[in-house]
Nucleic acid binder design. Sequence first.
DNA 1: TTGAAAGCGCTAACAC
DNA 2: GTGTTAGCGCTTTCAA
Lengths: 348, 348
Amino acid sequence: MTAQRGVVSITIRDVAQAAGVSTATVSRALRGLPHVDPETRERVRRVAAEMDYVVSPSASRLASGRTGTVAVITPFIDRWFFSTVLSGISDVLQESDVDLLVYEVGDPATSPGLPAERRLRGRVDGVIVVTLPTDAPRIADLLEIGLPASFIGVRWPGVPSVCIDDAAAARMATQHLINLGHERVGILSGRPQASTSQAARARGYTEAMKGAGLEPEEAAYGYFTVAGGESAMTSLLSQPRPPTAVFAMSDDMAFGAIRALQRHGIRPGVDIAIASIDGHDLSELLDLTTVGQPVEQMGRMAAHALLDRMLGRDNPDAGDPDAGEIAVPTTLVVRGSTVPVERTTSLG
Amino acid sequence: MTAQRGVVSITIRDVAQAAGVSTATVSRALRGLPHVDPETRERVRRVAAEMDYVVSPSASRLASGRTGTVAVITPFIDRWFFSTVLSGISDVLQESDVDLLVYEVGDPATSPGLPAERRLRGRVDGVIVVTLPTDAPRIADLLEIGLPASFIGVRWPGVPSVCIDDAAAARMATQHLINLGHERVGILSGRPQASTSQAARARGYTEAMKGAGLEPEEAAYGYFTVAGGESAMTSLLSQPRPPTAVFAMSDDMAFGAIRALQRHGIRPGVDIAIASIDGHDLSELLDLTTVGQPVEQMGRMAAHALLDRMLGRDNPDAGDPDAGEIAVPTTLVVRGSTVPVERTTSLG
DNA sequence: TTGAAAGCGCTAACAC
DNA sequence: GTGTTAGCGCTTTCAA
């Protein structure tokens, strides 16, 4: 009937027999359910341990309908933000003895990306989605399965989410540059078709500029990568009157911008000011002023929110009012990359 | 009997009935097994698609004994090397329609780390272990389950592994510094109790030094982190006669070293030379000379090796001679951080 | 080529 | 507090 690999493993029946009880009792005892005599429980535990018994996950799942597994859907796993989030999630899940299944779906803007909606059915008890920018149809499909979910960087009605206030973060970075006296503040944006989070950052920048009576500049697109940031910065530099300061929507793009500046013999923090958003591990090394977000913590919070959902009431109606958006705080970390305008060399 | 959540999902029985065949035929047809009339298969497929049928993983697993899942055991997921490896693994697994379970076990040298040996039983069809340095007992336990395995950065008899030639990489970096005329070449090592891979890098360094008639310096320990590299470099600088060049066993430590140098007003690539191993994404940005390894590729190879094992013969005897070690090539990438000794400022 | 039927190993009513 | 028992939804012999 069954493909047996390796050692024939022992089953709950073996344990029941050895302990002189029924399989039901073994099941109850081992899972810590009530209505088991303490003495019986102890004996069952001991016997099970002696026999090195391990419950069969498949059997348990089939019978109970629970998988003890959570899927994380993320565009990337090898980029700082995402791997850090993942690590936070992993921590929490591990504490709760829940398995972590990872689906790396790629940038929805470029790759088709395997949505994995149907993959998830019966495979996991819940899903954490990490910033799939503006990928509404896919997300809707996901939720249609009725799986408990929790989002990071995406707001969705009825689903708990963990986000920073993107507009505020962008405003903070931009305002900092403005406060230093800069009037021509360039912006390194993500991509032309903005995600909600990108749009909010753009808004924050624009608001800060207009609030100071300054003219927002046209965005250069860096696609949130180092290489993209480099070429975007390069294009900014080729303008007739380059900015004296630059706001980058992500640290990676700022890193790329720094490289572009180096190539042009322009010293960030001396000839030009630059600030961004992220709080990347290596931003300190590069002396980059950035608006830090508690990324690992965000992963942890999303995991907790999901776990609550999964354990909570059985009827997580969409639109549940208390499916809260958690807005985590950001902090401006001022470093050497931002200098007052009077100290910068005129590039214009 | 069963906890039913959400919509009552349709089963193979529903499909069988709708298609006018038995469940056995549906199973065969949908899985592409032979001995099914093409016409029947087509009909079953259509009906299944129309009904939006998805096999229940738990049931399928219980009946077949296969899980279609692979576990990756890694000390970290939020560090460049590990997340990059993970991404490579994820790619390959996804192509083969195999699920990826991630266990982040922490640094075995410091944390107790949940070994997860018994967790794996019945949960996955195979395991990929990423550089758990010198963690022999745990690894042995793992293999005892008889699970197909594949290692990255760890050699183990009878298990396919993907490694770089650590000694050669270290030799290459050190020799490069020696060739530039440096005679006092410091070394930023990992930790006092060396893993095999760390030991090999130390050996490569020593060999290069002795081969040039130079005296190997005493190692400073940076624990493979940026912060560790910084303090290790700091201690090197406090020596009576600091080295004119430094070999760091990892890019992260080199990054930290660069920070330490910055703090001391010493310019890497001007006052001191530094070279390391990794080929980190941001090494170019920091103009760091490094011995690059194809990390993502290593992940891919390990995944392929495991998949081969899983699909291959049913009896993967330990000690199988063709359980090959794959040694991947490394390349020295020379950048601005390594300068000839005559151009460095004397620090001694 | 197809179907009948016996499990896979566990959980959860329900009865005692 | 404990046992009995009927599944969970599939896969896989075996027979037709």
